[in-house]
Structure formats: structure tokens, C-alpha cells
Simulated assay, not measured.
Amino acid sequence: MTARKAKLADIGDIALGLPEVEEGTSWGRPAYVVRKKSFVHFREPRPDAVDPDTGERMDDVIIVTVADQDDKEALVASDGPWFTTPHFDGYNAVLVRERDLGKLTRRELEEVITDAWAARAPKRLVAKFFDEA
């Protein structure tokens, strides 16, 4: 049995399934937030993320929070679609393009989004969620 590939709609389904998550905005762009802190953010095209094939700014970049630099380095070094740019040096987040979500399984995406939520949500809320899971 093959695991289902992740889709764009999975991001909202997963994020909104976590405690106290709302759809919101961050820097004027769509985001998923927990207690006013974004953990998944749809990024505007920027000069630091250029498509190597077209030379155009990437217009489908998603920012996903990570707990720390070790998690960031592990995801970027993995075989997955995660990447970073110099703009994000020292910032606890990884990037992924919408077009590359299918390189992940839904389960892999769920794990990364849940970890992102846990990195931004209050510690008591995170503990309660994982105790009940």
C-alpha cells in the first residue's frame, strides 16, 4: 500500500485540526496561527527565492516554523523538498514550494506541521494535546 501524496488542501486540514488554530495573516499573507503566532505562512514572492529554471521569483513558497536550527538542518539535508535561503539564516523555519508538496506523504506533512504548531503554541496547550493523543 502506497502512502498518499500531500496536497495543498492538506495544509489547512492538518493545521485547523490542531488546538486553537485559526486562519489568519502574517505580513499580509495567509497563515495559520495559534494564539496570534503564525506557524505556517504563505510567502509573497521575494528576490531571495528565484526559480532556477525560469529566473522568476517563486510565487508558491510556504514558510513552516521549526523548533530549532537542528530540526531545520535535518529537514533541509533530508531527501525532501525542504529548503532555505540566506534571508532565513538563523531563523527557525524551512521553506517548501506548493508545487513540491507531492514529494511528501500526507503523514510527513502532518508531522512537520504538528511540530511547527508545537514550536509556537503555549507549552501547556502542547503538553495537553500530546497527553491526550
Rank of each mutant, 00 (worst) to 15 (best):
V96M: 11
F130P: 01
R46L: 07
S38K: 07
G90K: 01
A31P: 08
L95C: 13
A49V: 15
V40Y: 01
S38V: 04
G17D: 01
A6N: 10
T54D: 08
T2M: 12
G28T: 03
K128R: 06
R46W: 02
D68V: 12
R43W: 08
I63Y: 06
T25Y: 09
V21A: 12
T25A: 14
K37A: 13
V21I: 14
W117F: 05
A77E: 11
L8Y: 11
A15H: 03
L8R: 11
R43Q: 12
G24K: 00
N92C: 05
L75E: 07
D10E: 02
V33G: 08
V94P: 03
T65E: 09
H41R: 14
S38Q: 09
R29K: 12
P47K: 01
P47L: 05
R97W: 05
A116K: 13
Y91L: 15
D115L: 14
F129N: 00
F42E: 11
E132Q: 00
I62L: 12
F39D: 09
I63C: 15
W82C: 08
A127P: 05
T25L: 15
W82G: 04
R29A: 13
V76L: 13
T85Y: 05
V34G: 02
E98M: 15
V50I: 15
H87I: 11
S26G: 04
P47C: 02
S78W: 04
V40P: 01
D89T: 09
K128S: 01
E23G: 08
G28A: 10
Y91I: 14
M1Y: 06
R46Y: 01
L125R: 00
A74K: 14
K103S: 13
T105K: 04
K72W: 01
D71M: 15
R124M: 06
T85G: 11
E108M: 10
A31M: 07
P45H: 02
V112Q: 02
I62R: 05
F130R: 09
D131C: 01
A9K: 03
D89W: 08
F39C: 12
I14D: 03
L109F: 04
Y32N: 07
V33R: 15
Y91T: 10
L95R: 05
W27Y: 04
G80W: 08
K36V: 12
I11R: 04
E23I: 14
K123I: 02
A127T: 05
D71K: 13
P52Y: 07
A116T: 12
A77Y: 06
D100V: 08
D70S: 10
S38M: 09
S26W: 00
T84W: 01
R124Y: 00
V94I: 14
D51W: 04
E23M: 14
L8I: 14
L8D: 11
L104P: 13
G28Q: 04
A119M: 12
V76I: 14
Q69R: 11
L109R: 04
I63V: 14
R35A: 11
I14F: 00
K37E: 13
R124G: 08
R43H: 07
V126R: 01
D70N: 08
F88C: 12
H41M: 15
V34S: 00
W117N: 01
F83G: 12
P45F: 03
P52L: 09
K72Y: 02
D60L: 10
